[in-house]
Simulated scan of single mutants.
Amino acid sequence: MDTKSLMIDTATMLFQQKGYKTVGLNEILKACNVSKGAIYHHFPNGKEELLIACLHDLKVAITTDIETIFRGHRSTKEAVQAILHKLIHNLETEDTITGYTFSSIVSEMATVSEPVRNACSALYENIQHIYSAKLVAEGFTNESASEIALMLTASIEGAMMLCLTQKSTDPLKTIAKRLPNLFV
């Protein structure tokens, strides 16, 4: 793995685990075993630019994963259930879903930095677009599909945050049980 990718992967993990404001550049440097010059070589504007690169990588990874799941299921209902079961499984077996959630970064930084807010917004929009497109293909109107996609995104993201704070999979299990009612 090249140095830039290593810094992005490491910073993403640290930001998700500890929060953007808590993680200092020195901690990232130490975890990557690189010099301060390496950070500024790849991210001349510093930590915030690194965060935006992390959010971009999350956008690609999460979008790719969701698209793969959606292609493998005939209906939005089945695909959403598959996503929820994957998240529950990851939380139960790995005790984390950090690869999927970035709400902590949003709550910390979205009101402070317009570029970070835009990067977070783009990720949510990608997720909602995937949901919405599948719903439209199933016969939902654009408006209805867009509304349901928003509700799915908010419900899943909110449940992930509740799972992490409660150290329980119950919030995800609850929405897995209740979300299918949206597709009626």
Rank of each mutant, 00 (worst) to 15 (best):
T98Q: 14
K47E: 11
C54T: 08
Y20H: 06
E78H: 02
T76R: 02
A31W: 04
L87M: 04
H56E: 15
H41F: 14
I97S: 14
L87K: 00
L55K: 08
A31L: 02
N26M: 13
F43D: 01
E49V: 01
K77E: 05
E27Q: 13
I69K: 00
A31I: 00
A79L: 05
T98A: 15
A31N: 00
I39S: 01
F43R: 05
G46Y: 12
G24K: 12
A79V: 00
H85F: 03
L51S: 07
V106I: 14
A82E: 06
H42Q: 03
H73V: 06
H41V: 02
I28N: 03
L25K: 02
K36G: 04
K77Y: 04
C54Y: 09
I83E: 15
C54D: 10
I28L: 01
I88P: 00
G46K: 04
T22K: 12
V106K: 15
A79F: 13
F43P: 01
E78A: 13
T98I: 14
N33Y: 09
T64L: 14
L91W: 13
E67W: 01
H41A: 03
S103P: 00
A53D: 14
Y100M: 09
H42A: 00
I97T: 09
V60L: 11
A53T: 08
H73N: 14
C32A: 01
Y40Q: 07
S107D: 11
K59P: 08
E67T: 12
I88A: 04
A82K: 06
E94W: 05
K77S: 15
E49D: 05
T96K: 10
G24L: 12
H73F: 08
A53N: 08
V23R: 07
C32T: 04
K86Q: 07
D65I: 01
E92M: 05
C54L: 12
L87Y: 02
T76L: 03
E67Y: 06
L29H: 02
N45K: 15
V23E: 11
K47G: 09
Y20M: 08
H89D: 15
E94H: 13
L50C: 02
K47W: 09
C54G: 04
V23C: 05
D95R: 12
I97F: 07
G37M: 06
H42Y: 15
N90E: 14
V80C: 06
K18R: 10
K30D: 02
R74N: 04
E92S: 08
K59V: 05
E67V: 04
T101F: 14
A61I: 03
S35N: 11
N33I: 04
S104Q: 03
S35F: 09
E48R: 07
S107I: 15
G19S: 04
A82N: 06
H56C: 11
K86R: 04
L51Q: 06
A53H: 08
L87G: 00
K47R: 09
V106Y: 15
I52H: 08
F43V: 03
V80D: 08
H73M: 04
Y40A: 10
L29N: 00
T96S: 15
E94M: 07
Q81N: 13
T76A: 14
K30M: 12
I69N: 00
C54W: 08
T76I: 11
F102T: 14
A53G: 02
V106H: 12
T64F: 12
V106Q: 14
S103E: 15
